[in-house]
Amino acid sequence: MSHSPEERYDPLSEDNPQTVHRARDVARGFLSVLAPSGGDEADAVLLVVTELIRNAVRHAGGVTGFGLRAGPGTVTVTVHDASRQPPWLQLTDPREPGGFGWLLVQELAADVQVSVGPTGKAVSAVLPLSY
């Protein structure tokens, strides 16, 4: 099962201040079917959606695609963006906010893949989800 926001929503873009909120709404709807009782695993999926979308908007020229796919006991979150630069771990002052999104995605996901293409990249994170 895969869901693209273009099916019912305007495309997600950098200049839309609701991008992260809209992606989370799409993910909540997706998860409400797969894991209606929610739980920690569903919360982890929402957190990864938030971080990948936010990183694409802040650091990678905006979101060019977003998808969710259910697999056996997993959910894959994929975010496409306009940058060919792979994500990197930013070393920040621990007293300053931010800078932990990429590390958080890697900690929560069972697998993370980055595919770079001619017009940007896709970041996919596979998370466990019991359903």
Rank of each mutant, 00 (worst) to 15 (best):
T19A: 11
V20C: 12
V20Q: 13
H21Q: 15
H21I: 06
R22I: 10
R22M: 10
R22D: 14
R22Q: 15
R22G: 04
R22V: 13
A23S: 12
A23L: 06
A23M: 07
A23Q: 09
R24A: 12
R24D: 09
R24M: 11
R24F: 00
D25T: 14
D25Y: 11
D25R: 15
V26M: 05
V26K: 05
A27L: 04
A27H: 04
R28F: 03
G29H: 14
G29N: 14
F30S: 06
F30R: 08
F30W: 11
L31I: 08
L31G: 01
S32W: 01
S32V: 01
S32Q: 10
V33P: 00
V33C: 00
V33E: 08
L34E: 13
L34G: 06
L34H: 11
L34C: 09
L34D: 02
A35M: 06
P36S: 09
P36I: 05
P36Y: 04
P36R: 03
S37A: 15
S37I: 02
S37N: 09
G38N: 12
G38H: 12
G39T: 05
G39S: 06
G39W: 01
G39I: 04
G39E: 00
D40V: 10
E41Q: 15
E41R: 13
A42F: 00
A42Y: 01
D43I: 04
D43K: 13
D43P: 03
D43T: 12
D43C: 02
A44N: 12
A44P: 04
A44V: 01
V45C: 01
V45T: 06
L46C: 07
L46D: 02
L46G: 05
L46M: 09
L46I: 07
L47W: 01
L47M: 11
L47E: 11
L47G: 05
V48L: 04
V48C: 06
V48K: 09
V48W: 01
V49D: 01
V49Y: 01
V49R: 03
V49E: 02
T50R: 14
T50N: 13
T50I: 00
T50K: 14
E51P: 10
E51G: 10
L52G: 09
L52H: 10
L52E: 05
L52V: 11
I53A: 12
I53Y: 01
I53W: 00
I53F: 00
R54G: 15
R54A: 15
R54P: 00
R54Q: 14
N55M: 12
